[in-house]
Amino acid sequence: MLNSNVPFVCSLLLALVVPSAANSGLAPLAKTRMNMETGSSPIEKTVSFALPGQDEMPYVHSYIQENDESLLAVKQRSKRYFKMIETVLQRFGLPAELKYLAVIESDLKSTATSRVGARGPWQLMASTAQDLGLKVDSAQDERTNFYKSTRAAALYLRDLHRTFKDWRLVLAAYNAGPLPVFRAMQRSKSTDFRVLERYLPSESRTHVKRFMATAYYFDALSA
């Protein structure tokens, strides 16, 4: 679930919460509505962040076994949505593997709603969606518009990557918000996900593992 109002406070958090990170070359998270597609340079494509390590494979196999039926249902549903998502991700210079984030967020259901009010295929909170340029009011809720919400999520993911420079950290920040990731960096004195993950909220650690398991299911087992 994408945390609300974080794009506007990340630069301040870098300076106040983790001073060492502010001097480590991490780019500040820019205000998202001002960073549309214009002038964006493509991010180098890689699948390495989505590949589980050998020590992570027991979780991957367990997750796939426990969720086999639901993953199969999403696989059928994905034929309608993956191509569009990949097109949007490519436009922002993002790895195509990020489409699996929508799988673990909502099972690719545009009407999915969480207990805290996140909604749509990318589980955006209302305030965050509005910050990203989506209309959310009594008349309409563009979080349920698959194309528009995908574009908003891609914009936010791009800015998160400009800050953290590591896709696993981006996935954790997408789930918990940047602040817990900054705190984990400070406590671990590292920007390596495998080093700092024990300082992250349990839900965020699981979120990243679920992403890798889902990517493995679609890319390795379904190839």
Rank of each mutant, 00 (worst) to 15 (best):
M1K: 14
N5D: 13
F8N: 01
V9Q: 07
L12T: 11
V17W: 01
P28Q: 02
P28G: 01
P28T: 03
P28L: 02
L29S: 05
A30W: 10
A30E: 14
K45Q: 15
T46S: 15
T46D: 10
D55Y: 03
M57Q: 13
P58M: 01
S62E: 14
D68R: 13
S70R: 11
S70V: 09
V74M: 12
S78Y: 03
Y81I: 06
I85K: 02
V88E: 12
V88K: 03
L89E: 07
G93K: 02
L94Y: 09
P95W: 11
A96L: 07
L98W: 09
K99E: 06
Y100T: 05
K109H: 07
T111S: 15
S114F: 01
V116S: 15
P121G: 11
L124T: 06
T128L: 13
Q130P: 00
V136R: 02
V136C: 03
V136W: 05
D137G: 12
D137V: 08
D137Y: 07
S138G: 14
R151L: 07
A152P: 08
Y156W: 13
L157C: 08
R158E: 03
L160V: 02
W167R: 02
V170F: 03
Y174R: 02
N175I: 02
A176V: 08
P180M: 01
V181W: 11
R187C: 05
L196T: 13
L196K: 10
E197R: 05
Y199K: 03
T206Q: 12
T206I: 09
K209V: 02
F211A: 04
M212F: 04
M212S: 05
A213P: 05
Y216F: 01
F218R: 06
D219S: 05
L221M: 15
